[in-house]
Design a binder for these strands. Structure first.
Length: 492
RNA sequence: GGCCCCAUCGUCUAUCGGUUAGGACAUUAGGUUUUCAUCCUAAAAAGAGGGGUCCGACUCCCCUUGGGGCUACCA
């Protein structure tokens, strides 16, 4: 078997995709790219109760945002239109019901699975009794032992509600090799007679996974660690069907920083969409999450998606869970912001600045971004304390003062700035020119005396970019106006 | 409770028996600087505990402890 590797990401439309899901999808994508395989997407919508209407579209938007393009399976466009591509479809599980039913019934016929008519109430009380007796909750095989196949088939024919359960061997061990954890071995006696087909005719994850990954020719199943305990069930199922199981790679969990528990939607702000709206760049998010639980074993940390794909290796996946820590993401996001092409960055920043003003020119936008980018960690930071680019600042006159200079010296300082700026004419109003004029006039041992009051006059802030940068952005006329105004303030 | 997985600085990690246990983020102290930020330099910071194996364990084995996961007609 040296056919093309085939790997899949299998989201459920039950909510927005979170950062942990995205990491799984990323590794799947990287695996496919690295080994020149097929990355396909299958939609696992077998739990009708949990389906959330717009979830699927959001999942695809997030994947698209991160740049994880897939080759096959389900595609959803921005308008929410769902299409499928590939020769092993349908790729949406709710459209494959007959397939699962056929295989489930086949196992019944072969005596490897059986009909169960137990009510939820009986199951609940059984579980309660077992828990009280401090036993592992497990189905007691009642229907297997007390209802013959003929009787069961009769009941089914009469329309009685049933599920199909897998008859797990009571002895023996089930083994498999996990790509990240090595040799795994489980005692069958600890396994429950799990449900394959639910009473509504839908398959459980277990059945759907085995049937689909066989039929869709998945070569490696990359999924979260939470599936590890049920992996032996899946192996047993593959064996019951007489199929070769795929290779498995169970990924470590991403933990919430505060709770140290598996990242979940409950923790809030972990959806990929949230990161996007807060102004994280996909390059940074992808780079960062790739390094949570995987590492190229070198000291390099900055990688593009393509570079990650080159370096990726399942053998380098970590076994232990990783805490998701925003601080390093912020740093990395800042790195990417500083390296990004200015035009692209400007467009990404535009929406955040619209809270100040609805319209402004591309040129003006780019100037702001060029000046502000070095202090941004997130795109949204462009709109923090930057209102002075759009309107003359209001400020406490006290902050105009540089150290302990007198009001007279302060006024002189501002008048000097006014004079310097007046000398530079409109066509020479360039960053370097403004800077050099200013620096040439400032006392080298006490530049603040000139620069601090000027900067405050222009920005109204104690902390801001340099006066020449701000002056360059807002223009000659506006700069002169703001200085004149500050002089008036000092006088009164 | 049962079953399973995991365990190096605060965080992400390197080390695949012999290292002054390395890097990055964050932190602290300097430098550059009108302020903030950027940038540069430096410092502080780790092998959970106990047994083995071995000439020699962070590294291999066992136990304890701790953390996490699973335990549904959810995925």
């Amino acid at each position: 078997m040296n056919s093309k590797p085939r790997v899949r990401f299998a989201p459920s439309p039950t909510g927005y995709i979170h950062i942990g899901n995205l990491r799984t999808a990323l590794y799947v994508y990287l695996y496919a790219k690295k080994y020149n395989g097929i990355f396909y997407i299958r939609v696992e919508d077998t739990d009708q109760k949990r389906i959330v209407p717009d979830a699927l579209q959001k999942v695809f938007e997030s994947l698209d945002w991160a740049g994880l393009e897939h080759d096959e399976g389900v595609f959803v466009d921005d308008a929410g239109n769902v299409t499928e591509k590939g020769e092993y479809g349908p790729y949406i599980q709710s459209r494959r019901l007959e397939i699962y039913q056929k295989y489930a019934h086949q196992l019944v016929k072969e005596g490897k699975a059986y009909y169960c008519f137990c009510t939820p109430e009986r199951l609940d009380s059984l579980r309660a009794i077992q828990e009280q007796a401090k036993l592992a909750p497990a189905y007691d095989k009642l229907c297997l032992h007390t209802i013959s196949r003929e009787v069961a088939e009769e009941k089914v024919k009469n329309g009685e509600k049933y599920v199909i359960r897998f008859d797990v061997p009571e002895t023996g061990e089930t083994e498999f090799e996990d790509a990240v954890r090595g040799e795994m071995k489980f005692s069958n006696k600890n396994l429950d007679d799990f449900v394959l087909l639910k009473s509504d005719g839908y398959p459980t994850y277990h059945l759907a996974h085995v049937v689909d990954d066989h039929l869709m020719k998945t070569t490696v199943v990359i999924r979260g660690e939470e599936w590890l305990p049920s992996a032996p069930k899946h192996i047993l199922l593959f064996q019951a069907f007489g199929w070769d199981p795929p290779q498995y790679a169970h990924l470590s969990t991403i933990l919430n920083k505060n709770t140290k528990k598996k990242l979940s939607k409950r923790d809030g702000d972990v959806s990929v969409e949230d990161f996007r709206t807060k102004g994280y760049l996909p390059e940074a998010v992808v780079n960062f999450i790739a390094l949570l639980g995987w590492n190229p074993k070198t000291e390099r940390e900055i990688f593009s998606l393509d570079e990650l794909a080159k370096e990726f290796d399942v053998a380098k996946l970590n076994k232990s869970g990783a805490i998701f820590d925003l601080e390093k993401l912020d740093w990395m996001n800042g790195m990417y912001i500083r390296e990004k092409d200015i035009k692209e960055l400007a467009e990404l920043c535009r929406p955040y600045l619209e809270k100040y003003k609805e319209k402004f020119s591309d040129d003006y936008l780019r100037k702001i971004v060029a000046v502000e980018r070095e202090r941004m960690k997130k795109l949204s930071d462009i709109a923090e304390n930057t209102e002075f680019y759009f309107s003359a600042p209001e400020y406490d006159p006290k902050i105009l003062k540089w150290k302990n200079i007198s009001d007279g010296d302060l006024k002189k300082s501002l008048e000097k700035s006014l004079e310097i700026f007046s000398r530079i004419d409109e066509k020479n109003w360039e960053l370097e020119k403004i800077k050099s004029e200013l620096m040439a006039s400032a006392d080298p041992t006490n530049r603040g005396e000139l620069l601090w009051p000027l900067r405050v006059a222009l920005t109204g802030k104690e902390k801001s970019p340099s006066p020449w940068e701000v002056a360059w952005v807002i223009g000659r006329k506006e700069s002169l106006n703001r200085i004149k105004r500050s002089i008036e303030i000092v006088q009164s």
